[in-house]
């Protein structure tokens, strides 16, 4: 994954043009931009608004409504910790506290070395094998605090690939 996270209006426009013909295109466009850049830059808002014939306020309103969309660049990896009931019943509250303490960040923050962004998530659908976390696009089950630390070590020493 690129570290530069640089974007150009042309790159944003290309994503928009590939999708704007679809009915209700705004969410697919926002997903495409975030998939490409890791976040939806503020500067993308006027470009999207103009292309879809909507106001900037409307576009901004949609971005801010959904938890999934970020407006600042995340770290090299995004780690989501499930906070929902099924995981609570097997120790998710302790895992959450441990994750924050061991990384030294709160939810929606990124470690100083830019390796890991920590986020909350409400259910990953792995409810028989919790506590669960998601690392980028992979879900991991039965995560103890020790397993969490081992995983973080792995992410930090091999930042290019998550080892299965």
């Amino acid at each position: 994954m690129s570290d530069s996270r640089e974007w150009t209006p042309q790159a944003i426009q290309a994503e928009i043009d590939a999708l704007k013909h679809k009915p209700g295109a705004l969410l697919p466009i926002l997903h495409a931009i975030q998939d490409r850049l890791g976040f939806v830059p503020e500067g993308a808002v006027p470009i999207i608004a103009e292309s879809l014939g909507q106001t900037r306020a409307e576009v901004h309103g949609v971005i801010s409504f959904y938890h999934h969309f970020r407006t600042s660049p995340p770290g090299r990896h995004v780690v989501q910790v499930c906070r929902a009931e099924a995981c609570q019943s097997v120790g998710a509250r302790a895992l959450e506290a441990h994750a924050k303490a061991s990384l030294g960040v709160d939810f929606h923050q990124t470690t100083a070395d830019r390796d890991i962004t920590l986020e909350a998530v409400y259910c990953l659908g792995n409810c028989a094998c919790g506590p669960s976390i998601r690392v980028d696009d992979e879900v991991r089950g039965r995560i103890t605090p020790e397993a969490f630390d081992a995983l973080v070590d792995e992410l930090r020493t091999q930042p290019l690939e998550v080892i299965g």
């Binding site: 009915p23 209700g24 295109a25 969410l27 949609v62 409504f65 959904y66 938890h67 999934h68 969309f69």
Partner: peptide
């Protein structure tokens, strides 16, 4: 794809979301 909003499981909210 949704975007991390539990409320979009409510059918009318889901339709709004599908409409962008």
């Amino acid at each position: 794809l949704g975007a991390g909003a539990y409320i979009c499981g409510e059918e009318t909210s889901l339709l709004e979301s599908l409409e962008g």
